[in-house]
Design a protein around this nucleic acid. Sequence first.
DNA 1: GCCGTTTTCGGCCCGACTGTTTTCAGTCG
Length: 581
Amino acid sequence: MTERSSNAEAVRAFRLLADLLDIGGESAYRAGAYRRAAEGIGRISEPLEAVRRRGGLQEIPGVGPSIARKIGELLDMGTIQQLEEVGREVPPGVAGLLAVPDIGPKRARLLWEEAGVDGLDALRVALEAGRVDELLGPGEARRINQGLGTLHEGEENRLPLGVARRMALDLIDHLREAAPLISRVEPAGSIRRFREAVGDLDIAAASEEPREVVEAFASLEEVSRVELKGPNRCRTILGNGFPADLWVLPERYWASLFFHVTGDKYHDIRLRDMAITRGGRLNEYGYTEGDRLKTFATEVEIYEFFGMQCIPAPMRSDVGEIDLALRGGLPRVLGLDDLKGDLHAHTDWSDGTASVRQMALAAKERGHEYLAITDHSRGLGVANGLDAERLREQGQEIDRVNAELAPFRVLQGVELEVRADGSLDLPDEVLDELDLVVASVHTGLRQDGERLTARALSAIRHSLVDVLAHPTGPIVGGRSGGDFDVDALYAEAAKTETVLEIDGDPSRMDLRDEHARAAIAAGCSLSVDSDAHSVGALGNILYGVGVAQRAWVPPERVLNILPLEGLLARLEETRSRKGSG
DNA sequence: GCCGTTTTCGGCCCGACTGTTTTCAGTCG
């Protein structure tokens, strides 16, 4: 993973360069170009060094000849000369001020030049001494002081998608109670785009009385502070410190508003560019040419207006989807309806909360044809893992449930521990009796990369392992993943036809989007699962679908789009091929 | 600095909100 860190370094370097140029009074467009390039670099999973080797740097969105050259400097010398030079003019600490809400490049420059503020600590001192008040006025000083209070230094203040989405849905419920005049209200922004970590809640609403809805929103119990409030817009900070934004317009603007609030920014800008070349402009009300406004009933109509296919929200990021949609060549990506079943779920036999029958009934109700019960194996003692004996007993219970619920089918599987030495937690003759074996590396994630990778590879190669669960091992917002050589995993999984999982549990989201994209490019098949430990959590498969869409995963590369018979045949084929190979 | 179904030069998204600006600059999403 050492190569990959150079991507993160480049993102940091170009962001810093952009900030410093901005503060130094350089053209905002030039500074913006560096910021755009940082964005583009942040979205690729391939190491920059590898991209350079194949001459592909300028294919990165926002990277042209000049920035490509600077990427070269960074790779070869570990620094960018221009950054060093600009850093001598403007102390890099000044760029840190931009993280404070209401401080942009102009105020950062003013604070630094007029009050010697060269970082966040100096800002606190200056606020204390009343110098910010003198420079910017009491109102701005108050806002900046508040903004500084919500700023968590270092760590980016983002929440796992599942947590953020739950918060947004609760907020929406309460808003509907408080403001009955709402005709529509939906989470938008990065929640709707299924980013695995979310920085704020963006909510779009339609109402003929926008002002009343804004007032109701600002008065919700959850809201601890209103940062900004207008007739159709409100930005708040919730009691837990998390920002929540609301946009409200009358129903006839809904599609344009929903599109606008969904983003992402660069996708939005590309469509606005297209509006300009047509002689008009695109905004959250519709398309305006002269004094004539054309509104849209649906997002599909917006895209059709520009002669494009409609792009699913998770795919909106201006990394090529727009050009494909213009040519009618947007690939079909996995949808929730494509999935015929779920291949990873737990019951009260290990650390789940529901019985086999309860889980099966709930899966059946969701329209699934099958559900694999994959309780933990014995090695994960903390999760009450099953040994061979208890697996046999559980098999009898599964048989009874299958007799009752046919043609729905409960598959008996196991989530099998890959031990610290790379051996598997149950003997082959036990695994051979099961419908599905999902292998997992849960423990010893702090091992060095070589050993970790070797463990995962040995699981992938094993003839009775069908799926490698949550292959990289991170917990969103918590511990980072193991130091796996992911490219080696993809290559081996593709070769052996072992399936890699997209685990939809919101605290995992693993594989994440960039990994899933790389795995698809390497030729792997994937499964998209809930990893549910309760009946309600079966719905988490939706998050897995979101990740798959962000990664442009085509349905035909996903194992559990297969109907039951096809799935069983496929599992058997792959096992026998691996066994003989 | 990037980029092109009007462009290889001359543009660069758009609108909302705040403060102390009496007509707009700065910031944000």
